[in-house]
Write a protein that binds this DNA or RNA. Sequence first.
DNA 1: CAACATGTTGCGTAATAAGCAACACTTTTC
DNA 2: GAAAAGTGTTGCTTATTACGCAACATGTTG
Lengths: 251, 251
Amino acid sequence: MKSIEKAVSALQLLVNSGGELRVGETSRHLKVTRSSASRLLASLASGGLIEQDPATQRYRAGILAVQLAASFHRNFDLVEQAQKEMEELARQTEHTVWLGVLSGTEVVVLKTARGSQPIQFTVEPGHRLPAHAAAMGKALLAVKPDAEIRSLFAAALDPVTKQTLVSIDDLLREVAMSRLRGYAISNQELFDGVKAISVAFEDPHKGMNIAISVSYPLFAFEGGSDQPVVDALLLFAHHFGSRIGDKRWTK
Amino acid sequence: MKSIEKAVSALQLLVNSGGELRVGETSRHLKVTRSSASRLLASLASGGLIEQDPATQRYRAGILAVQLAASFHRNFDLVEQAQKEMEELARQTEHTVWLGVLSGTEVVVLKTARGSQPIQFTVEPGHRLPAHAAAMGKALLAVKPDAEIRSLFAAALDPVTKQTLVSIDDLLREVAMSRLRGYAISNQELFDGVKAISVAFEDPHKGMNIAISVSYPLFAFEGGSDQPVVDALLLFAHHFGSRIGDKRWTK
DNA sequence: CAACATGTTGCGTAATAAGCAACACTTTTC
DNA sequence: GAAAAGTGTTGCTTATTACGCAACATGTTG
C-alpha cells in the first residue's frame, strides 16, 4: 500500500520539521508533484490526524494524534507502571529520571520525573536522542545481537559532543561492556558536563523494551563518587524488573 | 486519496475501540476484505504510526503517534500558556480544571489540573466527552452560529444522564443562555452529582478555540453557593483572554 | 480431530493516484 | 508598481496500484 506508506513518511517528515509542514516541502522530500502532496496532506487532514492552519496554510499535528498517543500510553502497561516508581527513584537520587524506547537509531523519551536538585537536565516527552550517544540507547541496544546493531548503524555515527563514540566497533565494545556491567553509561557523550546511567527492561507479554535512566551534572559529584546513584538505579531495576516479569532481573 | 482517508478512518476506529484493533474488526467496519485491512494496517505500521503486538497480532498506537502529539502540544501555544494559569485556578477553586477543544460533536480533553479537594472528578488527557452534555462543549458551541450547531447535531442527542439535553432546540436555548451569561453550565448532564462551568477562548492568530472548565461535586456546596467558583473562573477568563488577545474578553 | 476463525500471501482486473497543465493567489525582486 | 517567482489547489488522462478472490498457515473452539 504505497500511498499509505508515503503518508506515514509525510508524518515522519512533519515530526522532523519542527511540527510544521508545507505542501512544497513535502513534495520535494517525498519526490512527488505538488499536486500529489497537496492531495495527500488534505487526505490526512480529513480525519483530524493533521490539520491545516487557516492563516499560513501550513499543516500541523491534529487532535487525532493526541488521542492516538493517549491510547498508546493507556496500553503501554510498562510506562504506566513505571510512573510511580520513577518518581520514587527521582526522589532518592535527587536527579532527573527518564523513560524511553528505541525507535530505529534514536531513543524516544516517553516520560520524565524531575528530581529535587535545583539544576536539572530534562527534555520534553516525545523528544528524541541519538541512541549511540545516550545511556538509554546503549542499554536498549545491549538487548539486541551485535549483527542487528551493525545493520542499524549502517551510516556513520553522529558526533554530538567531543566524547561521542563515532566508530561502530567502539559502540559495540561499549554495548558489550554494558551487558557485563548490567547498566549502560553515557559520560558527556550527549551533553557536555552531564553523565547518565541506564538500565533496560523487557515486557515478556508485549515484547517491547523500555529503558530507565538517571542523568546528572558532573559537578554534583565533584570529588565524590556517584556510586549511590548507581546503587539506587540497580535496586530500582531489581524491584521493577522482577515485578513486570523480566527474566534478566528476576534474580 | 481514498486509501489514505480509509487509513485515517482505521486510526479513528483504533481510538474508538479502546486502543486495540484487529484485522477482522477493521475489515468489517471499513467494509473491505480482510486482505485489504491486513495490508492497510501493515502499511500504517511501517513507519511506526501504529505497531503490531507480536503476541496477540493486534495493532495499537505506535511511537510516531507520541511524537506527533508532542509536536501538537509544542505548536499549540494556547495550551502551553494555559498550563500554569490552570494550576493557579485549580488552587483557588480547590477543584479540577480541564482544558479541551471541540472535535466534531465531542470535546477532546488536552490537559487537566487537579485541585486540592480530596474527591476529584478528572479524566485522562486524550479522552472525549459528548459536547452537548459537557460545559466545555456548550462553551465552545456558543462561539459558532446556530445553523452550524444544527448541522453538527443532525443525529439525536445521546442521553448521558437523566439531566442531559436531548432536543436540539433545548441545546440551542442553553447555548444562547451561555452567550448572555458569558460562561456555560453543565448541571449533572455528564455525571450525576457533578456540576461544571466553562468559558471558551479564541486564538486570533491560529483561529482555534479552547475551553477551560471547573468541575465539582454538588455536595461540595450543599447549602452554600458556588458563586466563588464562578467568580474565580470569570476572573481567570478576563486575565487569560486579554493576554492571548481574545477580543471577547479584552473588555 | 474436525470445524471454525484468524491473519497473511499470489494473481488478474478494476479502481485510483500521479503527472501535466492551468488557475488563483501571495511574496519577491527589480 | 509591474514583473517574476513561488505557493497551494483543481480538471483531465494514463499508468499505477489497490481491491477482491482464492489458497494457505496458524491458532481456537466444540
